[in-house]
């Protein structure tokens, strides 16, 4: 196993750990906002680590750029959907109490 493979395997394992942590947060946390917090933050880091590991294994600029694009799109989608869900949840709560 080359150094590159060892490093990328480590990155993959770390990425999987973040995904696991985010999913446990999603399942265990009590309300919408803390669940979103766990899911988006941890999963974005997880996705970044997995993409980085695959970039190292891919060994080409094209693959690296594609993976970068995937990560950025993931970030964007997570940000906006998280924002919308949180907003909706706040509105619904406000409607109930008022």
């Amino acid at each position: 196993m080359s150094v590159l493979e060892i490093v990328s395997t480590g990155l993959l394992a770390a990425g999987c750990f973040f995904y696991l942590a985010g999913t446990i947060g999603l399942l265990r946390f009590p309300d919408v906002h803390s669940r979103l917090h766990a899911l988006t933050k941890a999963d974005n880091v997880g996705l970044f680590l997995v993409c980085l590991a695959l970039t190292l294994l891919g060994e080409s600029l094209r693959v690296a750029l594609l993976l970068l694009l995937i990560w950025l799109l993931g970030l964007l989608a997570a940000t906006v959907s998280c924002h919308l869900i949180a907003r909706h949840s706040i509105r619904r709560k406000g409607g109930r109490s008022g």
């Binding site: 799109l73 964007l76 989608a77 940000t79 906006v80 924002h83 919308l84 907003r87 509105r91």
Partner: peptide, 14 residues
């Protein structure tokens, strides 16, 4: 419902 500012930014990219 008023639209959040993020949505327009997302659309102009996506």
């Amino acid at each position: 419902v008023s639209e959040p500012a993020l949505v327009g930014a997302l659309l102009s990219l996506v």
